[in-house]
């Protein structure tokens, strides 16, 4: 654990009242015509783990990409609303500028550099840093400390490592940028339950020991709500429900729709739709 991280957290703690990351009623349009997010608002407190839940196509990934501004490379843009990082409006910045400010996204499907070794992958994560190779070496050791498997595989081409190792590599690579917030998109995708648990444990450890804030998009609602402190449920590009993890876990709708623990018999799809429509806000 490096002193610089501690100092940064010490400074930021003074303004703890303000959320570190705040998304204010954003609309996202792809290709100038396809409206994907229809007013999403959420707050990520400093040092928190916030889960973004919802089914396929609900807009989880789009929300994360709007925050990291990777949307631009997919011809999407934020047309309404704003995104602020510690008070500064950031949605018009470039991905590079955002990484420099401490927001790094781990993309869905891992996206390791296949023809680079694991260690080269990690070092590429430090591309934007200007604090010298000694500091980067130190953080490399930090990543290896949290992901001992990566140390074993550090000379292997990332393309030849297993799915779990690639996910760890992608998270480790993001950590090398010294992020304040990691936007973690679907870390459980395609992984065995045991591995998913291992990765979530490490995420929780990074959160508590290295004070990295996480915004986590996840379909695996059960797992996400075990580790997150707060959650938002997205549906059709809108936030339909939010609350702390405990209350979401006990919410009848979440139980029924996302955890598969329905108490009453399954209602028809039509009923669900109209029910949801009434409950929407924003």
């Amino acid at each position: 654990m490096s002193t610089a991280t501690l100092e940064r957290n010490g400074v930021a703690d003074q303004s703890a009242a303000e959320p570190l990351l705040s998304v204010n009623n954003i609309e996202v349009v792809y290709d100038h015509v396809i409206l994907v997010l229809k007013g999403v608002s959420l707050q990520v407190p400093k040092g928190g783990i916030v889960a973004l839940l919802g089914a396929n196509g609900a807009g989880k990934s789009t929300t994360l990409k709007a925050i990291s501004t990777l949307l631009g490379s997919e011809r999407g843009e934020v047309t309404k609303g704003s995104i602020t990082l510690a008070g500064e409006t950031v949605h018009h910045l470039t991905p590079t500028q955002l990484v420099r400010r401490g927001v790094v996204q781990v993309m869905e499907g891992r996206h390791c550099f296949e023809h680079l070794t694991v260690e080269e992958n990690l070092l590429t994560g430090a591309y934007t840093r200007r604090d010298g190779s000694a500091a980067i070496r130190r953080d490399l050791e930090m990543v290896y400390h949290y992901f001992p498997r990566l140390r074993e595989r550090r000379k292997a081409l990332a393309g030849y490592t297993s799915g779990g190792e690639q996910q760890m590599c992608a998270i480790g690579r993001a950590l090398m940028a010294r992020p304040r917030v990691v936007l973690l998109d679907e870390p459980s995708m395609g992984l065995a339950p045991q591995l998913v648990e291992e990765i979530f444990e490490i995420v929780a450890k990074l959160n508590s020991e290295e004070h990295v804030t996480f915004l986590l998009a996840e379909q695996n609602t059960n797992m996400a709500l075990r580790y997150a402190r707060f959650g938002y449920v997205l549906e059709n590009g809108r936030v339909v429900l939010d609350g702390d993890a405990e209350s979401l876990r006990n919410n009848e709708d979440v139980k029924e729709f996302y955890l598969g623990l329905g108490s009453s018999g399954r209602r028809s799809f039509r009923e669900i739709k109209s029910y949801k429509r009434r409950k929407r806000w924003l």
Binding site: S68, L70, S73, T94, P95, T96, L98, V99, R100, V104, Q105, V106, M107, H111, C112, F113, E114, H115, L116, T124, G125, Y127, T128, A170, R173, A174, M176, A177
Partner: peptide, 12 residues
């Protein structure tokens, strides 16, 4: 290798 991933870690 993967220009999107490169962008995600801030490679301009």
């Amino acid at each position: 290798d993967d220009h999107q991933a490169a962008m995600s870690v801030g490679v301009p």
